[in-house]
């Protein structure tokens, strides 16, 4: 009985908790980028998914280059070494986009909906750019040790029937996400630059009239967004694989996460990321195994006990989004200002 319970917990951790925590961290980092753009620049950046794709692509190119030169940081993936370079290139791209596209509309004091459409245009361009450079196919770039703990070793160690596997990419995701989130909150709350971003987000008129240079705030925002997008994209790519179309699709859960948490609220973006990730994983998981351990033999389920097939996982973010918008339109953390 006790053993059954332990097996159930291990199976649950292995197939639900750990993957959902990793996926949630990736969504949270993505949603933070969306929320920052919304808070400071005041528009929904539809190009964010493809910004992530672009960032990841540059990281992959640097990784390949490093690999060809024999540089590695075994047992960690080489991509981590390439990350700062990827961020730098992505930052240049975003600043360039801002200079040639968004600044024009900022000068005109364009409506948010115009920005939104403009960002759609940017999205398509990035979409094409990424496919043009690296191709539409699947790219694997994870190297180094694949597992921290293998299922087989866990079984041998504990004598349980169920195994617990922890992928290197999953733990790197969690550690990196925690570091990034702490750094971001420290930056926003403790540094003058971060405070001027918050001030600008809180009350633009007042910020301008207190001498805060809007262009500078915008530049810092894009720099941070570039870092967040590249990190989120690379972590996702390491964990699964890189395919431009997948990143485009990620836009939905990321926006759902940002909106569920409350657009403009960094804390909300993180909470939203995990809400979406956990719902997605839990609803598409086949509970048969866990239930078989927990239920008396006579009640063992005969089906898979999977609520929704994985093909429909995007519908879940959508449904959560609708529910939140119906009952709490400002999101869990009352969004808008940073």
């Amino acid at each position: 009985m006790m053993i059954d319970f332990l097996n159930a917990i291990v199976a649950l951790s292995n197939f639900v908790l750990i993957p959902a925590i990793a996926y949630g961290s990736q969504l949270a980092l993505g949603a933070l980028g969306v929320t920052l753009v919304y808070g400071v620049l005041r528009f929904s950046n539809f190009a964010h998914g493809d910004t992530m794709a672009f960032g990841t692509m540059t990281v992959i190119l640097f990784t390949w280059w490093f690999q060809s030169m024999g540089i590695s940081i075994h047992p960690l993936p080489t991509a981590l070494l390439a990350l700062p370079f990827g961020i730098a290139v992505t930052a240049l791209l975003l600043l360039g986009t801002d200079r040639v596209v968004y600044r024009f509309y900022r000068k005109q004091k364009a409506q948010p909906v115009i920005y939104l459409i403009v960002s759609l245009g940017v999205m398509f361009i990035l979409n094409g750019l990424v496919r043009f450079i690296i191709g539409p196919g699947d790219q694997r770039f994870a190297d180094g040790e694949r597992f921290i703990m293998k299922a087989r070793d866990f079984k041998a160690m504990t004598g349980l029937k169920e195994g617990l596997a922890i992928k290197t990419s999953q733990s790197i995701t969690l550690v990196t996400a925690i570091i990034v989130v702490i750094a971001l909150f420290w930056f926003l709350n403790r540094t003058r630059t971060g405070k001027s971003m918050r001030a600008f987000s809180d009350n633009e008129d007042l910020a301008l009239l207190s001498g805060i240079n809007p262009e500078r705030v915008v530049i810092y925002t894009w720099l941070i967004v570039a870092a967040l997008a590249t990190i989120a994209g690379t972590l996702y790519g390491l964990d699964k694989s890189f395919k431009p179309f997948t990143y485009f699709q990620l836009l939905l859960p990321i926006f759902a996460a940002a909106i569920v948490g409350g657009l403009g609220s960094p804390l909300g973006a993180i909470a939203g990321g995990f809400v979406i990730a956990f719902s997605e994983v839990m609803i598409t998981y086949a509970w048969k195994k866990v239930l078989t351990y927990l239920m008396p033999d006579s009640l063992d389920p005969s089906g898979l006990v999977q609520l929704i097939a994985t093909e429909y996982k995007f519908a879940i973010s959508f449904v959560i989004l609708v529910i939140v918008l119906l009952f709490r339109p400002t999101g869990l953390f009352r969004g808008k200002a940073l």
């Binding site: 405070k195 001027s196 910020a207 001498g211 240079n213």
Partner: peptide, 9 residues
């Protein structure tokens, strides 16, 4: 927040 061009910027 007010004084501009603080070195922390």
């Amino acid at each position: 927040m007010v004084p501009a061009d603080q070195s922390g910027e």
